[in-house]
């Protein structure tokens, strides 16, 4: 990458980051994540106060009393996972608006009169999204450190792994959002596309799980067809959805499988590169005019 591109990337990313930090959106997203985490921690604390004690296991357990306990990882891991989900959704929304907004407002054309090309522009936008997520993550880390000190819930190795994993997820989400943004000329279209995809990514696995556990003594044929359809959709979503990559990484952390975690990080990286490349190609085709 030549020097001019680096300068352009730094300037655009810096400008965008300043703009993000001076708006309320990011703080609302952080607060939403913290509300979800607080709700979970509040529930844990109340449960322990009512029952008197709790053991937070780190792996699947089988005892004489229970055939199999549900997985229950470190107490801070699930709240962190949900805050990361919310932070990542914010990043996707922000990324999905990043190109289309500039194109819609006409500022993109002005920008490209300078030494800015499609590669430096897309990379700059991507870097800005990652930096924004870094800010979100800093708030989350500060929150969990404070809550851990107050509540005495431990922050284990899983917490650290989850933080690293979430950075890779942010990469996936930002590249996916930019891919959506590069395809559209209007902000409204970007928002609609974002909503359609996020709802699909979250709903398909849930519907699939629901269909798979249905009792099939009646309407056997219909349930069977629904299972085939949702299985195929779920398979596709598991490769396209950035949430699926976080899910696989989280499972690897809970199971303590380093190889699976590394595999998950590697695939997240490939996902990011593929969608960023696609964004640049589409951006070139669509051009900078309104």
């Amino acid at each position: 990458m030549n020097r001019f591109r680096a300068v352009a990337i730094r300037a655009i990313a810096g400008r965008e980051l300043r703009s993000t930090l001076f708006n309320m959106g990011i703080y609302v997203a952080i607060a939403l994540g913290l509300i979800v985490a607080s709700f979970m921690i509040y529930t844990y604390v109340t449960g322990i106060m009512e029952y008197g004690m709790a053991v937070m296991p780190s792996s699947k357990t089988e005892t004489r009393y229970y055939s199999e306990l549900p997985q229950s990882p470190e107490p801070m891991l699930v709240p962190l996972q949900w805050t990361v989900y919310i932070g990542a959704i914010y990043i996707t929304l922000s990324a999905s608006l990043s190109i289309s907004r500039e194109r819609d407002q006409g500022t993109l054309e002005v920008l490209f009169y300078g030494p800015v090309d499609s590669l430096s522009f897309v990379i700059a936008k991507f870097v800005e999204q990652l930096l924004s997520f870094g800010v979100v993550l800093l708030f989350y880390i500060a929150y969990f450190v404070v809550m851990s000190a107050i509540s005495k819930f431990a922050l284990g190795v899983g917490f650290l792994k989850m933080i690293i994993l979430s950075l890779f997820l942010a990469g996936c989400m930002a590249s996916f959002g930019m891919f959506l943004s590069s395809m559209t000329r209007k902000v409204k279209t970007s928002v609609i596309l974002f909503l359609v995809f996020v709802i699909t990514f979250l709903a398909v696995p849930m519907i699939h799980q629901f269909v798979m556990v249905q009792y099939t003594s009646t309407m056997k044929g219909a349930v069977s067809v629904a299972r085939h359809v949702t299985s195929t959709l779920n398979f596709l979503v598991s490769w396209i959805s950035p949430f699926a990559y976080l899910g696989r990484g989280t499972t690897a952390i809970i199971l303590g499988s380093t190889s699976e975690l590394i595999k998950s990080l590697f695939f997240s990286l490939i996902y990011t590169v593929v969608f960023l490349t696609a964004s640049i190609v589409i951006f070139n085709r669509k051009g900078v005019r309104r």
């Binding site: 607060a31 913290l34 509300i35 985490a37 607080s38 709700f39 921690i41 509040y42 604390v45 109340t46 322990i48 106060m49 929150y143 404070v146 809550m147 107050i150 509540s151 005495k152 819930f153 431990a154």
Partner: peptide
């Protein structure tokens, strides 16, 4: 670890 009930208050305040 003995948990602190004040954490519920902070869970409400910190967000």
């Amino acid at each position: 670890r003995s948990i602190d009930s004040r954490s519920r208050f902070f869970a409400v305040i910190l967000p």
